[in-house]
Amino acid sequence: MEMIEKQLVSAPRNNRYILIVTALVAFLFIWSFSAVNIENVEESGWIIATNILQGIVSPDLDLLLNITSQGVLYLLVETIAIAFLGTIIGALLAIPLAFFSASNVVPKPVAFITRLLLIFIRTVPALVYGLMFIRVTGPGPFAGVLTIALISIGMLAKLYVDAIEDLDTSILESMTSIGCNTFEKIRYGIVPQLFAIFLSIMIYRFDMNLREASILGLVGAGGIGAPLIFAMNAYRWTEVGSILIGLMVLILLVELFSNHMRTKLVKG
Rank of each mutant, 00 (worst) to 15 (best):
N259K: 02
T238R: 12
S152F: 00
I229L: 06
V106G: 03
V9L: 14
I48D: 12
G225W: 03
I38T: 08
G217T: 03
A94F: 03
Y74C: 13
F206N: 05
G86T: 04
L218R: 02
S58W: 06
E173K: 11
R262I: 11
A234T: 05
L253K: 05
R205E: 11
I203E: 10
R211I: 05
L172T: 04
N14S: 06
V219K: 03
F84H: 02
F183C: 01
L156P: 12
P141M: 12
E43C: 00
R16S: 08
M175Y: 14
I245H: 06
F100M: 15
G223K: 11
L127R: 09
Y74L: 00
R187S: 07
E78V: 02
G55M: 07
S32K: 07
S32E: 07
V21F: 11
L218E: 01
V240H: 04
I134Q: 09
I113Y: 04
L252W: 08
E78H: 03
W46G: 05
I38F: 15
M261I: 11
V105D: 05
A213V: 10
L8D: 11
P107M: 09
T147G: 04
A26H: 00
A35Q: 10
G223A: 08
L131Y: 06
E239D: 05
I67L: 15
G179C: 01
L250H: 00
F198G: 07
S174A: 12
Q7V: 06
P227I: 06
F99A: 00
F142S: 11
I164S: 06
G71S: 13
Y188G: 05
L156F: 02
L24Q: 04
K185T: 08
N14T: 02
L228N: 03
S34T: 05
D162Q: 08
S170E: 15
A83P: 10
L265G: 01
L85K: 07
L250Q: 05
V145D: 08
V57Q: 13
P192G: 02
A196G: 08
A157D: 15
S32N: 15
